[in-house]
Every structure is written in C-alpha cells, then in structure tokens.
Amino acid sequence: MTTSTNPAPATTPVLDANGVIMRFGGLTAVNNVSLQVNAGEIVGLIGPNGAGKTTFFNCLTGLYVPTEGTVSYKDKVLPPRSHLVTQAGIARTFQNIRLFANMTVLENVLVGRHTRTKEGLWSALLRGPGFKKAERESHEAAMELLEFTGLAHKRDHLARNLPYGEQRKLEIARALASQPGLLLLDEPTAGMNPQETQAAQELVFAIRDQGIAVLVIEHDMRFIFNLCDRVAVLVRGEKLVEGTPDVVQADERVVAAYLGTPFEGAPGDEEVAEVRAAEAKAADGATSTTSKPRTEEEGDTE
C-alpha cells in the first residue's frame, strides 16, 4: 500500500482555499490561510491545540461563513452552505463523532447518500417503480461501503452501540456515501490504539486509491508522516509551513511551535545535575519508587 505514495503529478487542484480569514469578534481564528489539495493526494493539516485547524475545516465545509476569502472545489467557488458543499463533492467527518446515534448503521450510510438521490415526498408516497429502484440502488451502494469499511455484519445495529473504532469507521463510510471527490477527516485516529490506527491508515490509502483526495487533521505525527504526500502546519491561525513530510519534520519552527523555543538562559548540564541530586536527596525513600514506572512508561510511548 505504502509503495504507491507517488507525488501525484496531476496538477488539477480539487480544493482551492484562497486567503481564508475567520474572525470571531476580536479573535482571528484563521488568518489568511490558502491551501490546495490536488486530485489523488493525501494532505495533512497539523498544528498545536487551538491553532484553528477545525475552524478552517468548518470554513471549508460551509459550517462557518469565512469572514474573507473563498473556497472553490474543482474551479467552482463554493457557497458557504454546508449541504451545498456536500452536494458539490466535499464530505467530512467530525472530531467528536457525530453519528445519528439512534439510527442503524445501514441507515446512517443511507443518509449519506441523500444528495445523490432525488426521490422526493411524492415519489415516497406513491412508491412507483422509480422509487423502488432508487431505494434498491441506495441499499446496494450502502452495503458496498459497509463491506469496504468492514461493518457489513453490523448493519442492523444502532450506531450508538458500536465500539469507538467502528463508530469512526462508520462516520467515514457515511461520508463516502455522498460520493465525494474530496474527503475531510478531522482527527480520524483520536482515541485509537496502535492497531486501530494502522487499520485507519490502510483505510485512508484505500480511499485514496479510489481516486478520492483526502485532507486530514491529526495529532498523531507518526500517522500523519506515514500517510501524507504533503503536510501543512497551522499555528495560531496562520499557515507556518507546507511541504513534504520530510521538510515539515525538519523545520525548526514546527518543533518550536509544538514544544516552545529554548530561552536564552537554558539550564546547563551542571545545573540539571544539581537539581537531580537535590531531588534524589529529598525523595530518598518510598516516593522514588512511585515515580519510576511512570518515566518508563513515558519512554515507551514517546
């Protein structure tokens, strides 16, 4: 799977966000961010907490009306209305899973197909052959997506009763049901264990292989750098760097944004040793044993 990470010579941008600014009163949450996503590309969007990643997502998908700037999908400027954005071909998932909790898994996916079907009230009331055909096709398409995400055996379960990882998958299946050209994933692996994260990565590659461009927000750096063709870093509402994972990983400003810059009078080695010695003296006894396993664990989890 990973072998196919070609840099995508296709230069046709699917998504073109141009100078997006979002202000809430005096606070500028997103400041003049431009971003392009090309067809068949996986682009990552990272940044510390509160950097404005989700706000930017909301601007892209029409949940927020950007104060300035435009968002266009395949050279067409999108109106800031969420259902029109989805209709145009951009689907999304949410950071805090927003499934239709009391609907079944299958129904959730069927709702995702809303924009790709046209049967209105009259057709539903009269139940003509057209209605039945459309329903059958919708069911088939939905089941196909459930097979794709590995949820087919749970089609009749309520969404609320799915385990966490499967809820995430279902959200992706639901988004895919609208047959998007671009999929926006907002922290798809939040709260997942390493195996689940690995599975999510495979899933994103599989989606990309279907010709769907993906823009993903994530805090899991290993996941992002394995996955993405290009990564953009958002800090305090502004785009700091954009480039291949290697470039971004090596950039000092990114490290600084996450960890803070070392200040001038950084403690020297001897001072550190001094503090350690003092601590050891003070904590001579039972307390030191309690702190030990913690450091080990931290070392494990990086």
Partner: peptide, 8 residues
C-alpha cells in the same frame, strides 16, 4: 449539523 454536513 451532521445532517447538513451530509448534504441535507
């Protein structure tokens, strides 16, 4: 909100 994001 989710319904609107699904194109409804």
């Amino acid at each position: 909100t989710a319904a609107r994001a699904m194109g409804i």
